[in-house]
Computed example of a mutant assay.
Amino acid sequence: MITQVKAPGKLYLAGEYAITLPGQASIIFAVNRYMTVIIADVDETKPVITIDSDKLGQKLIHLDQLDQQTLDDTWNLTTKTLQVMSLWLAEHQQTLTSLSIKLASDLDQDGKKIGLGSSAATVVALIKGIAHHYQLSLSRLELFKLSAITLSSLDSFKAGSMGDVAAASFESLIFYSRFDNQWLETELSKSNCQLSALIATDWPKLDIHDIAFPSNWRLVVGWTGQPADTQQLLTINAKVARIYKERLGSKTTPLIKRLEKNIQQADYISFRTNLRLNQQALVKFADFMHINYVTPKLRELLSSAYRRGIAAKISGAGNGDNGLAIVQNEATEMALKKAWQARDIIPLQLEIATPET
């Protein structure tokens, strides 16, 4: 049996930084660049999983040693996902068997990361693929929760927002409010913790729902050519950062709720105003935190849009990666892309993803 699935990348419209705190809000695009997973059954005398990644090479895991695998190498995401899925399958009276797993990504540009959330897409696609392969169903919300559990179990990812996981799981434009991560950590530490029961439970503060994007609005994305290290940015001055993130969230969460209403009502003028207010709040936060948020190229990306009356914003953690704009017609889109290209900013061929059938 062969199973093929994919999970999309993401771009933040609004909510960065504050979204790492429980209950804060964000709006996130799932975009049409993907992590693809192909799973096939194999005959082996000793049960093994062979992983072939177009980015990392090959890895062989003997299933009788899966629980003992270290999580301190470049394979930690796939290894932890397999460990979690082995437990989840056991709760459904199934066993992880010998498999060939291929991972292929188009979430980068010329071999460089472009801020689309490749780590989250890897975990989501692998969980989705294994569930499909063993003919077990997962709702989009359950897929998110299993993926979030996996990433929350890794020290290098547990502080993240999981917004990229939400976008990859729901495959659309979404409103996302972060769950209470301390509650999840407590639940996972209980000796009687069952994954199936945990993903069936309501998670405190979690809210994920689709937002319908106006049919005449167009997403335009520009890449600076400078990858940003999101995990490093998220850990700068962690104790002080929480205070400033709470202040940021008190400003941005009401704005994000207004932005959602602006999108639903296709009110472009109000949307443009509220998006710029969100951007200004992030710039002030970055100044307080001494984060190099607005690079020269990102400043040019924004000013090129603002001069043309276009709604625009830096997407993600700043310090490189992407900015985005929302336009209402093709002529405006072409003019903006031309202005970006004149400043060495690369327009990316990205659209809002549509759910995989």
Rank of each mutant, 00 (worst) to 15 (best):
L336T: 01
Q328S: 06
T332A: 00
N322S: 03
A305F: 03
L298K: 10
A305P: 13
A317I: 07
K297G: 06
A317R: 11
I326L: 11
L302Q: 07
Y306W: 14
R307H: 13
I310T: 03
I314D: 08
Y306F: 08
G320Y: 15
K338E: 09
K297S: 06
A311F: 06
K297A: 13
S304T: 01
L298G: 14
R308K: 08
A312I: 08
L298Q: 15
K313W: 07
S303K: 13
L298R: 15
A339E: 03
E300K: 06
A335E: 14
L324N: 00
G316V: 00
I310S: 00
A339P: 04
L301K: 02
K337W: 12
K337P: 09
G323P: 06
Q328M: 05
G309D: 12
L336W: 02
Q328F: 04
L302D: 11
Q328G: 07
S304I: 00
D321H: 07
N329I: 10
S315F: 05
R307Y: 14
D321P: 00
D321F: 09
S315Y: 06
L301G: 05
R308P: 13
R299P: 02
A331C: 11
A325K: 09
A335M: 15
L302M: 12
K297Q: 08
I326T: 02
R299G: 06
L336F: 01
N319M: 04
K297F: 10
D321W: 08
L301N: 03
L336N: 08
A311R: 00
V327C: 02
A331M: 10
A311Q: 05
A325D: 03
L301F: 07
S303E: 15
N319G: 02
I310L: 02
A312L: 11
S315G: 05
A317E: 14
L301M: 11
K337Y: 14
S303P: 09
A335F: 11
A339H: 03
I314Q: 10
N329A: 09
L301C: 10
E330H: 04
G320S: 15
A312N: 09
G323D: 09
G309S: 04
E330Y: 04
G316P: 01
K338I: 12
Q328D: 02
S304C: 06
N329Q: 10
S315I: 12
L324R: 01
K337V: 07
L302H: 03
K337G: 12
A331W: 09
D321S: 02
G318I: 02
N319F: 07
R299Y: 07
E333G: 04
S303T: 14
V327I: 15
R308W: 10
S315R: 13
A312M: 13
I310N: 01
G320K: 15
L336P: 01
K337F: 09
E333A: 07
K337R: 13
N322I: 02
L301A: 08
S304K: 03
V327A: 01
V327Y: 07
R307V: 15
L301D: 08
